[in-house]
Design a protein around this nucleic acid. Structure first.
Lengths: 260, 260
DNA sequence: CGTTAAGTTGATCCTGCTCAAGGTCGGTGG
DNA sequence: CCACCGACCTTGAGCAGGATCAACTTAACG
């Protein structure tokens, strides 16, 4: 609640108007003004639509301003693997290679707004403002750490732990956007199918796992609302290394002049 | 064979001396000279040793010059998840956050040499040579794509497909280092345990899968040698999207002056 | 030739998948 | 206000892909 990020709420229509947001490409001291010169505009995507699809050439990178999106892969048989849930501040669309083709898609979970920076602008942008280049490096490598973390979860943990891990991560990443808030309840715009696709499980099994987690008084996810009933138990079940947990909440280093 | 990358071979002791290598941070037109000014030296790691370990503060990034390494996570119970196999040209150690702690480790599979660039050098380096910053962005986002690909493999594919996928990927990434070569046999310095840890399987099950793949005339991995018996069938079994396959072999865009 | 790390094979078990039949909620039109 | 519909969730029964445990073989190395 608190900040009008619920699906229906009135969404601000430019990067600038999110004072509480600390993270992302457009944020930080002086960076917004810089990126504003190079972005080609903002784009609104309605819930359920693709920002970009698998197989498309990717001509821009995107900075999420408002709303939730997810990156996904499709299998031949139609099944899906969700790779990443993007919250405001995330940078998407950096596919390796000039004139490259997207090997994964990005779909909006809620109505969303992204700031669009054309690929051609990246070279001049980074040339004129090297600190933005390093910020990009930082953001992408945070995404990489997160991906490695999921890899470990999916590769080696049983279902209960995977689901707990995902919910904990999303809760923390969400809460981190609004520093100081301590709410233990949030709007989480996912179906159980999404959770299954992200954790490598079926929706049916996710249903059973969520029932058990609720019964055990750990988390209650229903009607797109996530309620953390027992944070300590949740951290315990998720089996999350506290170090990793800390790294989720770590901010981009604000750039100092000279070498800090 | 061909190029002395076998475990024992005489390994060149500086970035410079790998003429055939096209990829990586130190390579490319003019980039080597630039990075040379900022690197603190080269480091030799013997097979089985960690380049960096989980929990260590990370004070440098590394560019693999020679040898194989892998990134890994450890679980409480001692099990392991392998996150990435690093070949020459890979950039490792970019953990998000200033003064950050490594959330995963890096271990050498063979004797290896890495080029060390201290973290403090990164800001001045990217400031004076923005094209290096963008090259870093490119390298890391390629790692991210690869991680997403593994996520899909582990999350949604059965054992046979996962193993085939990994072997195919390593074969292609290896061969891509030596453009023009068409060998269908390579030294692959892994145990079946490594393969299991990378694919989220047990070593025992990997043994069975490899037996079947051999029986079916697809690949033969034994005694740390990988022989591709039927490339087409392998691609088929791996279920690899040809697009993704192409992106493994895509090179870093060489930087043009101005906006290309 | 003894020792050790790595791979093989079989028997058994269990986690999570599949298939299928309801149930709940929210929206829409009569 | 109610009937209907579609998306989502729930629950059960049966199945299967891989895990586990354990014994044994093979290769590599001194």
């Amino acid at each position: 609640m608190a900040r009008g990020s619920e699906g229906s709420g009135k969404i601000p229509v430019d990067c600038q108007s999110c004072p509480a947001r600390v993270d992302g490409l457009c944020e930080g001291p002086g960076v917004f003004e810089v990126v504003a010169q190079f972005k080609s505009g903002d784009r609104v995507i309605e819930a359920g639509r693709d920002l970009f699809s698998i197989g498309e050439p990717c001509e821009a990178i995107y900075n999420v301003v408002e709303g939730w999106l997810f990156l996904y892969n499709l299998l031949e048989d139609g099944r899906r693997q969700i790779l990443y849930f993007a919250l405001p501040g995330a940078v998407l669309g950096f596919h390796p290679g000039r004139g490259a083709i997207a090997t994964y898609g990005a779909q909006a979970l809620t109505d969303a707004i992204v700031c669009v920076v054309p690929r051609e602008s990246l070279d001049p942008l980074s040339r004129q403002h090297p600190e933005v280049g390093m910020r990009l490096v930082w953001l992408i490598s945070r995404g990489l750490s997160l991906a490695y973390d999921h890899l470990t979860s999916i590769g080696r943990h049983p279902a209960r732990q995977r689901v707990a891990h995902l919910l904990l991560e999303l809760y923390i990443r969400y809460r981190m956007q609004w520093p100081g808030s301590r709410i233990e309840e949030m709007h989480l715009p996912l179906t159980q199918e999404h959770i299954g696709d992200a954790t490598g499980l079926t929706g049916v099994h996710v249903s059973r796992v969520l029932r058990d987690l609720r019964k055990d008084g750990i988390v209650d996810f229903r009607y797109r609302r996530l309620r953390i009933l027992d944070p300590d138990k949740l951290i315990d079940v998720a089996g999350t290394d506290p170090q990793m947990l800390a790294s989720w909440t770590r901010r981009a280093p604000s750039e100092e002049p000279g070498a800090g």
